[in-house]
Amino acid sequence: MGRERLRVVCYSVLIGATLLALWQASVAGTPAGKGLPGPVAVARAAGEMLANPFYSNGPNDKGIGLQLLASLGRLAVGYAVASVVAIALGVVLGLSPALYRAVNPYIQILKPISPLAWMPLFLYTIRDSGWAAVLVIFMSSLWPTLANTAFGVVNIKRDYLHVAAILQLSWWRRLLQVVLPAAAPAIVAGLRISIGSAWVAIVAAEMLIGGTGIGYFVWNEWNNLALTSVIFAIIAIGLIGVLLDAGLGRLSRRLAWSE
């Protein structure tokens, strides 16, 4: 480990420890069960929750592991379908500039709409709260990938397309060997934004639909006034968000290229 890096790690640990100490000091003296819980209480609760994360005692009492898995399952389905749709649509738009310009205003209008705003329509049309939440994930992870893919494809250097034209590559081969790899860095950047916004949206969606999921867990523990569980769930949401982002970061490094 280089000196510079060692210093960064030291600062990082120091800042974390200071924040935890301040937090603990601010809650010191309040009796257990009253006021905000401190880090020690949260850690104790976390230990208990992590000791048996996958238990299930009926609909209102499930382990945090099960709840997280439920959220991740919804995320996986909604995100995967949205990504396929967004990349396919983005490539089509990117390859035909006229269509791109014609459709772009609609994308710009749809993009800033909170995915949760669609929830009533989804609930009304499909009448299944679980799938409505999946659709919210779909909506939240559609636009960044779509916009980035179209942008990436539109901006492919003409030289690469000229080479593809001279080699008379079939439509399919041109797509796989030239268009997608050329636009890959932009596409993955979109996927990365999308997974972040999907993970943000799932918590809110699950608070609304109830049943299972980490969002529901947070709301349920709030109703139980179990703030230690709420705080621990917040931390878990953050950590999983980091892991999801790191996974796409790796993908992005694999597909990166420089001229």
Binding site: Y160, H162, V163, I166, V178, W257, S258, E259
Partner: peptide
């Protein structure tokens, strides 16, 4: 064509 700017696929 052999291009002035090479036009190789960088990936």
């Amino acid at each position: 064509v052999v291009f002035q700017n090479f036009s190789l696929m960088p990936w």
